[in-house]
Design a protein around this nucleic acid. Structure first.
Length: 475
DNA sequence: TGAAATGTTGGGGCG
DNA sequence: ACGCCCCAACATTTC
């Protein structure tokens, strides 16, 4: 009898350097690639249409690439343990292989799958989603790292695995039926956002374009908001359309060792791993502060301020541009993610979890570990977080990272005619200038929602009261 | 991956 | 020539 293994794809939607897939082909003559639409995920409030749309396209691309090699992707919808049990019976498979996922939801789900398949077939999970396995990098004391820089040194000191190409021949039994291919509306979503193309094929193209044309300038251009200085690879890494090890080695081998662009981009890849291992070792961060003392912070949580922040109508141009970039493109430049997160938590005094949820709903690259880590960093509640007294001034940040205002003008059309001098503080324009440029504050563009100086003092007071004593500055 | 407040220095205007 | 003040420019401290 032909030996068959089910390869359950989840967030590793590629053939290149896919650990579980390679292992399955090494162990079996035929592999059944399957993806399962899970209503427990689709119905979650923070599952956004842009991510489902990107997922669907990535699945189509995976199917095309499988077909080009004589295989195909099987789609099913249902509870994973039931679907997999059914498929094991239908195909007489001897094992289910998948790549591990460290999210608490996924760990519970996968434990349920293991329990359900016990006695029917083998179940194996592989390490795949990062440069290293989440438990592999430890301090000398054997504890997980909670500070980025030493973590990064430790990752760089050990060998990152070399990527391996897809198996040359892919054999799949022809007689296993899948469910019909759903449309986005079949899954309960619609979106008018125009997204980057999903899938492994565009991911490879984007990687090569970035390595050739962007990497050398990355260190200097990544913070220039108007330039396309970032890699734009985050959605592909999120869904595993791109292997992080492939990305790492492509960067290492592209430019001379020690080039600042390479080092800073690789540091970003390591941030991804860092927050993944934080979520793995400290799963309580999903619902609360990494440093638990901060769970008692007295956020003001003004709901109408939150709505204005979400819509990009705070009267702070850099914040509004960023929030509108998120809604209209499904993505936000990392520099402005920090700025708007600082603004929500330190200026509006709103719970970082509200912002985290909004980001998850709208980001095409939305990922629990990275998003949570970033939010807790900005809110000063996390590992290796920004000290609470380091508060961004949105106007100063705008002037620094968007000096000509071209990023602001791209997303905030009512400010397009405003001269550079006032682009980051339009409320400072004399009234006759406002009229001359058709941007009357309070009519065409909102007045600043809050006074930054005052809110800053309030935030310092709020944090100062709840900060753990040993972390309080001074003495 | 901060920014504001406060302190210090030194040049120039001025009596 | 000198002291005084002002204030930019820079450095340090504080949150």
């Amino acid at each position: 009898m032909t030996k068959r293994i089910l390869c359950w794809f989840r967030r590793d939607l590629r053939l290149d350097d896919n650990t579980a897939l390679l292992a399955a082909y090494a162990a079996a003559e035929e592999v059944v690639p399957v993806f399962i639409f899970d209503d427990a995920i689709l119905s979650r409030p923070d599952t956004g249409a842009v991510r489902v749309a990107f997922l669907l396209e990535s699945l189509r691309n995976l199917d095309e690439n499988l077909r080009a090699r004589g295989s195909r992707l099987l789609l099913r919808r249902g509870r994973p343990e039931h679907v997999l049990a059914q498929l094991v019976t239908e195909t007489a498979a001897s094992a289910v292989y998948f790549n591990r996922d460290v999210e608490p939801f996924a760990l519970v789900r996968d434990a349920r799958v293991r329990a359900h398949l016990e006695g029917r077939c083998a179940v194996e999970g592989f390490d795949d989603g990062g440069l290293t396995a989440p438990e592999a990098v430890r301090t000398k004391a054997g504890t997980p790292y909670t500070v980025f820089t030493p973590y990064k040194q430790a990752v760089l000191a050990q060998a990152v695995l070399r990527p391996r190409p897809a198996p040359a021949a892919l054999r799949t039994p022809a007689d296993v039926p899948g469910d019909p291919w759903p449309s986005l509306t079949d899954l309960g979503f619609t979106t008018s956002v125009s997204l980057p193309p999903g899938g492994e094929t565009p991911a490879q193209a984007r990687l090569h374009d970035f390595i050739q044309n962007g990497l050398a300038r990355y260190a200097t251009e990544r913070d220039v908001l108007s330039a396309e200085g970032t890699s734009r690879l985050s959605p592909y890494l999120r869904f595993g359309c791109l292997s992080p090890r492939r990305a790492y080695w492509a960067a290492r081998e592209a430019v001379p060792e020690g080039s600042p662009g390479v080092e800073s981009w690789i540091a970003e890849l390591i941030w991804r791993d860092f927050y993944r291992q934080i979520l793995f070792h400290f799963p309580h961060v999903e619902s609360g502060a990494f440093r638990r003392a901060y769970d008692d912070l007295a956020w003001e949580n003004n709901a109408s301020w939150f709505d204005l922040w979400c819509q990009g109508k705070t009267g702070f141009p850099i914040v509004d541009a960023a929030m509108r970039q998120l809604l209209t493109t499904g993505w936000m430049h990392n520099r402005v993610r920090m700025i708007v997160a600082s603004f929500l938590t330190k200026d509006l005094l709103i719970d970082w979890r509200w912002g985290e949820r909004h980001f998850m709903k709208h980001l095409v690259d939305g990922d629990l570990a990275a998003n949570n880590g970033g939010w807790q960093w900005a809110a000063s509640t996390g590992t290796d977080a920004q000290p609470y007294f380091r508060i961004f001034n949105p106007t100063a940040q705008g002037k620094k990272f968007d000096p000509t205002g071209s990023y602001v003008r791209r997303y905030v059309p009512e400010l397009r005619a405003v001269p550079d001098r006032w682009i980051h503080e339009p409320a400072q324009m004399p009234v006759e200038v406002q009229r001359a440029f058709r941007c009357v504050i309070g009519v065409d563009y909102p007045a600043p929602l809050v006074d930054h100086g005052r809110q800053r003092v309030k935030a310092l007071t709020m944090f100062g009261r709840f900060a753990s004593p040993e972390k309080r500055p001074g003495r």
